[in-house]
């Protein structure tokens, strides 16, 4: 599968050339164009080898999130028996990078940063708390594993941080990180700093691996706009 990231780093989109047999799984609603020979199938993102129980749980969570206006948990699979091309783009301004998985390596991707992945990559939703289920703050992660390429998008630019030891990032700036890193969501200091530092929740990483950080934060944009809205 050949691909190109174009119009980056401000307004990047991903162009993928599908050979017969190739499958691209992409975030619902991300398609820009496709050639006539490309088929699109919509699937619940419960993980490729999900059991019946997990499928049912994922189904109700997906339905709730779709109805309450959160991000969907549906993905579209593009394939082209006779070859073709599909272009996908994220919603916010920013860049796209591709990351090769294989050899048991996993990548955790912040839910809003997942754009697409190739057919042999398994993506499973991981909740880090009950509140995230209802669309509140926190970290909803997609665990990506298998052999293939994962494409993540950022709001703003992407900084690649090689972590060896510990590293702290605002949860709103986390794009993705290697499965070799342990993480814990908490406040930057005590209760006082949680309330007054303006930093909210942070993600504390420990171990050795690569971390991808975005230069803008959707939550910060929302906080900036909200008080300006009149009734």
């Amino acid at each position: 599968m050949q691909y190109a990231v174009e119009h980056g780093p401000v307004f990047a989109w991903l162009r993928v050339l599908l050979a017969p047999g190739d499958v691209l799984q992409a975030e619902a609603g991300s398609m820009v164009t496709r050639t006539p020979g490309v088929q699109m199938d919509t699937r619940l993102n419960a993980g490729r080898r999900a059991g019946f129980f997990r499928f049912i749980v994922a189904f109700f969570v997906a339905l709730a999130r779709k109805l309450f206006g959160g991000e969907t948990m549906f993905v579209n699979e593009f394939s082209a028996p006779g070859g073709g091309e599909v272009v996908v783009a994220p919603s916010l301004s920013g860049h796209i990078i591709g990351k090769q998985l294989g050899g048991g390596r996993r990548l955790f991707v912040q839910r809003g940063s997942y754009l697409a992945s190739t057919g042999d990559v398994d993506t499973r939703v991981r909740f880090t708390g009950l509140r995230t289920l209802l669309g509140g703050e926190g970290l909803v992660l997609l665990e990506c594993s298998g052999d293939g390429e994962v494409f993540v998008n950022s709001y703003g630019g992407i900084t690649e941080v090689p972590v060896d030891g510990t590293f702290v990032v605002d949860t709103g700036h986390v794009v993705a990180f290697d499965g070799t890193l342990d993480f814990q969501v908490g406040s930057v200091g005590g209760l006082k700093s949680l309330l007054f530092s303006g930093e909210g929740l942070v993600c504390k990483f420990r171990g050795r691996g690569t971390l991808y950080v975005q230069s803008r934060n959707l939550g910060a944009l929302v906080d900036w706009i909200s008080p300006l809205l009149s009734g």
Binding site: F11, W13, G29, G69, S91, L218, I225, L229
Partner: peptide
């Protein structure tokens, strides 16, 4: 001519997090 971003998708991404308008 195509644009690489979709204004209504951007609106949904930002707008779904905004507080509801008061009547």
């Amino acid at each position: 001519y195509l644009q690489t971003r979709n204004p209504s998708e951007y609106g949904v991404a930002v707008g779904s997090s905004l507080p509801p308008r008061e009547a």
